[in-house]
C-alpha cells in the first residue's frame, strides 16, 4: 500500500489544498483573530457565498468574477452583523460571551436551513474553463481548479498582508486589535474601525466562497466540515497572523491529504478537529501568537 511516490503526490496536493484552506480561513483570522468576535457563522457565510457564485453561474459568470461581484453585498452584510453584535452584546458587557456565541450559532443555523429550503440538499457545482482539466508537473497530475484556487489564495493572503501593514486603515485595524482603549484615548473611534474590518473580513469570505465551489461540490451542510478547518487554521496560526494563516493552512492541508491517502476518506472529518485540539492543548497561542 505505502509508497513514497504516493506520499510525494499527497504532499504536493496537500500544499495546494492548504493554501486554499488559508484563503477560506483568512476572513475568520480578521473577524475572530484580530477583532475577538466569536464568529462561528463564518463557515456558513462561506457556503452562502458559494451558493451566490453558483446562482451567478447561471448567467455564465465565471465563479471568480462572481466572487468579486459578491464582495460589496457581503461587505454590507458584515457591517450589519457586526453592528448588531456590538449594539446587543459588546455594549452590554457581562454575559456577552454566552449570548454572543449563541447569536452567531443561531445565524449559522438560519443560513444553513435557509439554503436547504431555497435550493434543496443537492450538491451544486459550477462550470468554468479551468474546471475538469489538469496539468502535469514533475509527473504529478494536478487538477487545474486546484492551481486556480492556489493562485487566488496566495494573491488574497498577500493583498491582505499588505493591506494590514501598509495602508492607514489596515494599520488602524491592527491597532484596534492591540489596544482598543488606547485608540479611544487618541480620539479615534474603535467601533467604526472594527465595523470596517468586519466588513472587509466578510467581503473576503465572498471571494473564498467562490474558491470553495471551484474546489469541490457544495451542499448546505458543508459548513460543518469547515468549522473545524477554519478554526483549526486560525488558532494554529496564532490569532490574527496572516502569514501564520498560510503556514497553518498548509500544515492542515498536508496532514489531511496524507491521512486521506493512507487511511481513506472516512477519517477525513476528524483530522482538522484533532489538530485543533492538539494545538489548543499544547500551544494555545498558535505558531505566531500575539
Amino acid at each position: 500500500m505505502f509508497s513514497w511516490e504516493l506520499l510525494g503526490d499527497a504532499i504536493v496536493l496537500g500544499v495546494l489544498v492548504g493554501c486554499f484552506y488559508a484563503a477560506v480561513s483568512i476572513g475568520l483570522s480578521i473577524s475572530f483573530g484580530l477583532l475577538d468576535v466569536p464568529n462561528v457563522a463564518h463557515p456558513a457565510l462561506l457556503v452562502l457565498a458559494s451558493y451566490g457564485a453558483w446562482l451567478l453561474g447561471d448567467f455564465d459568470i465565471d465563479p471568480i468574477v462572481a466572487g468579486l461581484l459578491l464582495m460589496p453585498p457581503f461587505f454590507v452584510l458584515g457591517v450589519v452583523l457586526y453592528r448588531t453584535y456590538h449594539e446587543t452584546f459588546e455594549k452590554r458587557g457581562s454575559d456577552a460571551g454566552v449570548r454572543g456565541l449563541a447569536f452567531f450559532f443561531g445565524i449559522a443555523f438560519i443560513i444553513e436551513v435557509g439554503i436547504i429550503m431555497a435550493f434543496g440538499v443537492d450538491q451544486r457545482t459550477v462550470q468554468a474553463i479551468y474546471i475538469g482539466k489538469s496539468v502535469e508537473v514533475l509527473d504529478i497530475r494536478i487538477p487545474m481548479r486546484m492551481v486556480v484556487a492556489f493562485a487566488m489564495a496566495l494573491l488574497l493572503t498577500l493583498a491582505l498582508t499588505l493591506y494590514l501593514s501598509r495602508t492607514f486603515l489596515g494599520r488602524a485595524i491592527r491597532a484596534v486589535a492591540q489596544d482598543e482603549a488606547a485608540l479611544r484615548l487618541m480620539g479615534a473611534d474603535p467601533i467604526a474601525i472594527k465595523q470596517w474590518a468586519f466588513g472587509i473580513a466578510t467581503a473576503v469570505v465572498a471571494l473564498a466562497g467562490a474558491l470553495l465551489i471551484i474546489v469541490q461540490p457544495v451542499e448546505p451542510t458543508l459548513d460543518r466540515a469547515y468549522i473545524g478547518r477554519t478554526f483549526c487554521v486560525v488558532v494554529m496560526a496564532g490569532l490574527g497572523s496572516m502569514s501564520g494563516t498560510l503556514l497553518a493552512g498548509i500544515i492542515l492541508g498536508v496532514a489531511e491529504t496524507i491521512v486521506l491517502t493512507l487511511f481513506g476518506a472516512s477519517w477525513a472529518p476528524a483530522i482538522s478537529f484533532t489538530l485543533l485540539l492538539i494545538v489548543l492543548g499544547v500551544r494555545p497561542q498558535g505558531l505566531f501568537g500575539r
Binding site: F32, P38, V40, G97, L101, I227, G228, F231, V235, F273, T274, L276, L277, L280, P284
Partner: peptide
C-alpha cells in the same frame, strides 16, 4: 469562551 465551545464541537 469560544475556545471551549469549538473544542466541544471538535
Amino acid at each position: 469562551g469560544i475556545f471551549f465551545s469549538i473544542a466541544t464541537v471538535a
